[in-house]
Design a protein around this nucleic acid. Structure first.
Length: 562
DNA sequence: GTTGAGCGTT
């Protein structure tokens, strides 16, 4: 039997670990001796560089072709972003000390953690142990064996298997609680082979995200060749990645969850190059909160007062200061106040301002601080949506509440759908529309554009031509004006833009919401929410034509994945 | 005695 010499850190006394018959070393074998470790590395004699050991499916592979581990002394790799505590070393010296990442991993958000009451409270919350759910347990696993397994990570306060009350048969999942936060962190950062099955350990849903700072980020502008491993590998350098989710079918975005919410937050607003592709990281709002926000929006649409919605998001913004800051849902913050949209010339028009999130225009231009005229409801509402809202809020903006043919008045022109998590988020930036007016490389593909052209004001150009160009590339402009003949005489931003920038050039967007009977030769492609057309209702009754899906499934809805 | 995504009689 081959033995592999492993030490916790380079230079430490090694322990010999038995390799398997095929020459591999089981990760579980490694972790039995070095709890929390997730891999091995060694110092290459020739290059003097540290080399990682290949790891796959819970096995570590010897570096040489002859399946030999050689005479190297390997040392452990611990997940980044998680301090590992040497068994004999001093433990954490303060309950308020976060699990700080290695020095090289330290990011801005770690600065000044101390001396901040708010942050301290947050850390305190974060450091609290919670029950963890263990999913995928073998039927045979007992509470004793479950406990036994997890004790290698630290003190186990509780180990529980959920069973059918009648039969006593395990339901295949259980809960475990640790006595120390670091043990919990280690457990959460690893995969677990328990009684022969790979199990997943998570913070249970029932714990909710509550007041916790989100750990998940939205990664926009992904290309199809960026797989979950790529994302995981890339983002792991910033901190432990606990989950990567790529919606299928491909939708040009994905989600990455970090163990440390600070890491997640610190990345928000940044562009990163992965496999040569510039992706954009932004906030991924918790689903529950999004739904709540959504409801609030509808309500607020009618009231003409959109402030206060998304309040959750405001609160969450404390971490973005100084960085990109999404200011989600915060109209006031988002308002650039430039008031310089040259295209809003007619008295009706909130379009372009409300829709595009150019708060300044609305605020200043339309209502002088009233934010909205009740009928036109909502500058605030739309502009804030960095998500799927169409910038085009026509019925409300134009008709207000009294349009006889507008069945949807009062329910928010764009989001009449029900049962949808609904779009909160995808912002232009994330979708590839940047201040340079260029868009991502998906142009022209059948991309099922997840867009909501909600806008991230921080990234928006104020030059409408650039906005137009960008939108145009995403096929958002094309024919959204099909109702224009009825509703407006003076033209609006979109019409201006359309006139000045031509039509959409991506023809296969599966847009929906086109209005039957429209004069628009391209009706049916005008809406905005793409995908297959299920859930898209061509409107015959004067509804906005945007997204009246009752069960639409293809709009870009981050919340569906959270 | 089967199952394999899920979320706990506190």
């Amino acid at each position: 039997m081959d033995f592999v010499q492993v030490s916790e850190e380079e230079g430490d006394e090694p322990i010999e670990l038995p390799a398997e018959e095929d020459g591999t070393l089981l990760l579980s074998t490694l972790q039995a001796q070095f709890p929390g470790s997730c891999g091995l590395k060694y110092r290459n004699m020739d290059t003097k560089a540290v080399r990682g050991v290949r790891s796959n499916e819970g096995r570590l592979f010897p570096p040489s072709v002859d399946s030999s581990w050689g005479e190297y002394i390997y040392f452990c790799v611990f997940p980044k972003g998680i301090a590992h505590f040497r068994s004999s070393a001093a433990q954490i010296d303060s309950p308020y000390r976060p699990i700080l990442p290695p020095v090289e991993n330290k990011r801005k958000s770690d600065d000044n953690l101390e001396n901040s009451t708010a942050k301290t409270k947050r850390i305190e919350t974060r450091l609290r142990c919670t029950d963890l759910i263990v999913l995928g347990l073998p039927w045979k696993t007992t509470e004793d064996s479950l406990r036994e397994y997890f004790e290698s990570y630290g003190e186990v306060l509780m180990a529980q298997i959920k069973k059918d009350v009648k039969s006593g048969q395990s339901k295949g999942f259980g809960f475990v609680r640790f006595g120390s936060y670091e043990a919990q962190m280690r457990v959460l950062s690893n995969r677990h082979l328990i009684d022969g099955r790979w199990c997943e350990v998570k913070v249970p849903n029932s714990k909710g995200m509550g007041h916790q700072v989100p750990c998940k980020v939205f990664v926009g502008r992904c290309t199809e060749d960026i797989n979950s491993d790529d994302l995981r590998e890339y983002f792991s350098k910033f901190g432990e990645v606990t989950d990567v989710f790529i919606p299928r079918p491909f939708r040009a975005f994905s989600f990455v969850t970090f163990l440390d919410p600070d890491v997640a937050q610190s990345l928000c607003g940044e562009d990163h190059i992965i496999k040569g592709v510039s992706v954009h990281v932004s906030n991924a709002a918790p689903k529950a909160e999004q739904n709540r926000s959504h409801q609030g929006q509808n309500f607020n649409y009618n009231s003409g007062n959109n402030f206060g919605m998304h309040s959750y998001h405001h609160q969450g913004n404390h971490m973005n200061s100084g960085r990109s800051g999404h200011h989600r849902g915060n109209n006031q913050h988002n308002a650039h106040g430039s008031g310089d949209n040259p295209t809003i010339g007619n008295s009706h028009s909130n379009i372009g301002s409300g829709g595009y999130g150019m708060g300044g225009n609305n605020f200043g231009g339309n209502s002088g601080g009233g934010y909205n005229n009740s009928g036109s409801h909502n500058s605030g509402g739309n502009m804030n949506r960095q998500d799927g809202g169409m910038p085009y809020n026509r019925q409300n903006n134009y008709h207000g509440m009294n349009q006889p043919h507008n069945g949807n008045v009062g329910s928010g022109g764009w989001m009449n759908q029900q049962n949808r998590g609904h779009l909160d988020m995808p912002n232009l930036q994330a979708l590839g529309i940047n201040p340079q007016g260029s868009s991502s490389s998906n142009q022209g593909q059948n991309m099922n554009n997840p867009l909501g052209v909600g806008l991230n004001l921080n990234s928006l150009p104020m030059n409408p031509a650039l906005v137009a160009a960008a939108l145009n590339q995403w096929s958002l402009l094309g024919n959204q004006l099909q109702n224009q003949n009825q509703d407006q005489q003076g033209g609006n931003f979109l019409s201006w833009v359309a006139q000045n920038s031509g039509h959409s050039n991506a023809s296969n967007m599966n847009n929906c919401g086109g209005r039957k009977g429209s004069n628009n030769p391209n009706s049916g492609s005008a809406g905005m929410i793409k995908g297959d057309n299920s859930g898209c209702n061509d409107q015959q009754n004067g509804n906005s034509g945007w997204s009246n899906q009752s069960s639409g499934s293809n709009s870009v809805d981050k919340s569906n994945f959270l």
